[in-house]
Structure formats: C-alpha cells, structure tokens
C-alpha cells in the first residue's frame, strides 16, 4: 500500500525530470566524456587504458554527484514555494510517505542519469580497448547505493535550510567527508583520549561516501572484485543511513506549518 503511494510520487518526480529536460544536461555531460575520450584518441597515445578508466570513474563520480544534489535539493522547497504541496498533503497520506516518495523519485532520476552516463562512458572505454570485468558491475551497484544516500542527505538538509544552502552543504559533505575521515585516521593516534572519542563520534555520524566508490580498484589493474559480505554490508549501511536521514527530515517536516 505504502509502496504504491511512494511509487506514485516517485513517478511524478521522474516524469517531471524527464519532461523538464534535466537529462539534456546529462547528455551534454556524457558528450563531454566522449569528446574527452576522442581527444585522448587524437593524441594517439597507446597504453592509456588505466588512465582512461581512472578518468572515466572520476568524471562519472563527479557528474553523478552534481546531478544527485541538484535534482534533490530543490524538490521539497519547490513544493512549498509553488504550493504544489497543498493538494498532496490534502490526500490521505502521511508526511513521511510524502518525503519517502519524493526521495524515491530523486533517487530514480539520479540513477537514470547515472546509467546514461555509465553507458556513454562504457562506450568510450570500449573504444579504448578496455576489457569488461565483474568489478565494474560492483562499481556501478555501489555507486548507485552511494548516490541514494547522497540524495537522502540532500533531501534532509533541504528540510532544514534553503535549497542553495542545502546544495552547498551537500557538496561539502559529498566531497569532504572522505577527507575528514582521512584527517581523523591520521590524527587519531596522536590525540588525547577525549579527542579520540570525539573522532569516533564524528566518524560514526558522517556519511561514508568514500566507501561506495571502488573506482581506484576498477581503474587499476588486477584488483579482485569486492567480497560479497562487503557489498551486502554497504547495501545495508546505505539503506540504514538513508532511512535515518529520512527520519531526521520527517522529524522536522512532520509538524512544520506549510
């Protein structure tokens, strides 16, 4: 029953996204990837497979992050601003269902964009003679889970602040969380016990976006696929974290006057 409500809302988001020609941006970005590959080909340098793969996963990660954040950050504020929220909330659905449906739509729109970019990147890599490997499927799967978490974080932030502030903070979190975690691991051993507890706390609440990116293993040679328990664990973590974020957004939105 709930799934039907979520799906109805998600389909609306997806349809709007498609008709608004958001995917044109994706197509343009994809063309940039193809053009960049063409430029590499133009240089005529042999043996750039590793670099091409590295470039591919880097650009994919960058573009898909931008799309996820920009798609999600305006979703809820625009509903309020344009008053499209009222006819929705007048229906016999809870505000949680509304958030869940919107998140589902944002994730599906982001995934669609990612799959298109992935397809274009794959074509570009095939032109470079890059071989298909199982780890690439794992890369796509984990990346999509990570993008889902990012959408949840952005949606939650947009419930608490303006769309531009939410987008900016989402970018900081998306690109900075790995750096922060890195800093924590470097400073941990030489810190006081109190600070170590603080570091553990920070590490536990930060979204671990870096874990969903196995790009370096894909780009470089002879790395084994990620163990299945890790894939399963990341899937569970992603669902739990996105769920937590959704609950946080709901705690703000449930009694918010609109």
């Amino acid at each position: 029953m709930k799934l039907r409500v979520w799906w109805a809302l998600a389909r609306g988001v997806l349809l709007e996204s498609l008709r608004r020609k958001d995917l044109w941006v994706v197509a343009i970005l994809g063309m940039i990837i193809m053009a960049a590959s063409g430029a590499l080909g133009f240089f005529g340098v042999e043996g750039l497979q590793t670099f091409a793969k590295d470039l591919g996963v880097t650009v994919l990660g960058l573009f898909s992050t931008v799309i996820a954040i920009l798609t999600t950050s305006r979703l809820l504020p625009d509903e309020i601003k344009n008053r499209t929220l009222y006819p929705l909330l007048a229906r016999p659905i809870s505000r949680f269902d509304l958030l869940a449906g919107k998140l589902m739509g944002a994730i599906l729109a982001t995934w669609l964009a990612f799959v298109i970019l992935l397809a274009l990147t794959s074509v570009a890599l095939l032109m470079f003679g890059v071989r298909f490997e199982v780890i690439m499927v794992q890369y796509a799967l984990l990346k999509m889970v990570g993008l889902g978490v990012l959408c949840a974080v952005t949606l939650t932030l947009s419930a608490f602040m303006t769309p531009s502030a939410a987008a900016t903070l989402s970018f900081v979190v998306a690109f900075g969380s790995s750096m922060i975690v890195r800093g924590l691991t470097m400073a941990y051993e030489t810190s006081s016990p109190a600070m170590q507890w603080f570091f553990k706390f920070i590490n536990s609440i930060l979204p671990q976006f870096g874990l969903f990116d196995i790009g370096p293993r894909v780009a470089n040679e002879n790395w084994a696929p990620v163990p299945l328990w890790v894939v399963g664990g990341l899937l569970a973590y992603g669902v739990a974290y996105a769920g937590g974020m959704l609950l946080l957004a709901w705690s703000k939105f449930r009694s918010q006057a609109v």
């Binding site: 409500v5 809302l9 709007e16 008709r19 499209t84 006819p87």
Partner: peptide, 22 residues
C-alpha cells in the same frame, strides 16, 4: 488551495491520476 501551481510538466490527466492514486 487558494493559489496552487500544479506540476507544470504534467498534464491535467496525469495530475489527477497522481492525486487519485494518493
């Protein structure tokens, strides 16, 4: 509602279908 902008990229039929499903 007093003033509502219905989703600009949906048709009236799709709009009603969405609300009807909800």
């Amino acid at each position: 509602p007093e003033v509502a902008l219905y989703y600009p990229y949906l048709t009236p039929l799709e709009t009603l279908t969405l609300y009807g499903e909800l």
